[in-house]
Design a protein around this nucleic acid. Sequence first.
DNA 1: ACGGTTCAGTGAACGGTGTTTACAAAGTTG
DNA 2: CAACTTTGTAAACACCGTTCACTGAACCGT
Lengths: 236, 236
Amino acid sequence: MTEATRRERLRAETEREIRQAARTLLVTQGREAVTLRAIARELGITAPALYRYYASHEDLLRQLCDDICQDMSRELQTHLAGISSDQVREQVRAVCHGFRAWALAHPQEFSLVFASPIDALAPGDQFGSVFLEVAAQLIASHPAPEHDHDDVPSALHGDLAAFQDVLIRAVASHGCEVSAAELSLGAIYQIVQSWVRLYGHVALEVFGRFPFAVSNPEPMFDRMVDQMLSDIGFRD
Amino acid sequence: MTEATRRERLRAETEREIRQAARTLLVTQGREAVTLRAIARELGITAPALYRYYASHEDLLRQLCDDICQDMSRELQTHLAGISSDQVREQVRAVCHGFRAWALAHPQEFSLVFASPIDALAPGDQFGSVFLEVAAQLIASHPAPEHDHDDVPSALHGDLAAFQDVLIRAVASHGCEVSAAELSLGAIYQIVQSWVRLYGHVALEVFGRFPFAVSNPEPMFDRMVDQMLSDIGFRD
DNA sequence: ACGGTTCAGTGAACGGTGTTTACAAAGTTG
DNA sequence: CAACTTTGTAAACACCGTTCACTGAACCGT
């Protein structure tokens, strides 16, 4: 059956339970409550036992971040699956609204993932990548929004080209093939700019840092997404 | 001379020393190191003594945030003072670059102010207000960028009008008078959108959450600010 | 100048935290 | 069965925020 030995299965199981307990604590009582002793208490164990599974408290939190991002990713993909693939704008809207909804529904998780300056996670396969992959896929499948290739600062060409490579490979691993020509540097630049605005709005809303009390931020968000779509070149 | 009694002066002095010590700890050793005992140790005092000045650790952090925002505000105002007031775009650029430079130079402070979900500060007189006041001032003093008043979602009219009021009063308190007509709802909306983008870029850069390793983010930032200016309607 | 009051600061204590260490009890394997 | 690895424990360490009873000095009205 499984290649793993009995011991390895048990270990993996416990590891899952630990992170599940940590997750529950995070959601129900906030970041401060995610303590080794509390986690251990949850599964009827003593705190030092956790060191058999994680090198430190920080290490556990880091891995918890990975779990969270993976879950969010899956949720966004689910939202996306319900929309026919030729309705490009609706797909972008779904991802953006899904991201915002997730952030507002899981502020603790969002804060954890976005509040730690550098130390917590590997930058590669993270939350953003979901949005970005989707964006790349959509732009690639779109009738070529025609961006001025020279419109992006030449100092960025190197970075953008590298990112272009990553995106093309990521999209390919999802089954869809795109060429560098279809996903131009200009398009990549637009994607990154969209990410800046999407992230900016959501973070400001979650952190309550809008300059005034926005009684109903949703129409503002809708308007911004529409503007983004129009800036990218999607006017169907 | 001073209205304050000797006792009040000593108290204010100590209060300042406490926050100074807290600030130093934050900058040199990170948020986690800002502990009551460490602060007390810094000024040759025991931890419980701090409770004569602040109700709790959280309260101290909250007031520290205020200090930080005030400092940043002063720094931005300084940058601004060096530019003749008729060079509108240069003033906006100065504020944006100043904000980014401050955030990158003080990542710990930035994280503290931007990482705490709701509990840490009053939303009114905060960091953002500096940028927003400046923006309002500039837009008001500009030859009317002519925004479509109807371009903003009607659901936002209430909030925007309230914010318009705040901004007009804030600008007035800085000596400059503007009317509601000069600072239209469309303009306000543009200001808020600019704040979203500015904050989004800076936070992503400080938190290292750009989707790819940006070897040199400055040209990207410059490009974004230019785009913002053009979107607002400043093309001088 | 004195006596009461206010106030800054102390030291001890409580319950909590992450982490290390030595040790016991299982499970695994030859 | 014996040797070994893995998993968990208990005790301890140093640190944390916070409370409480207490001291000593500064202030203030008389």
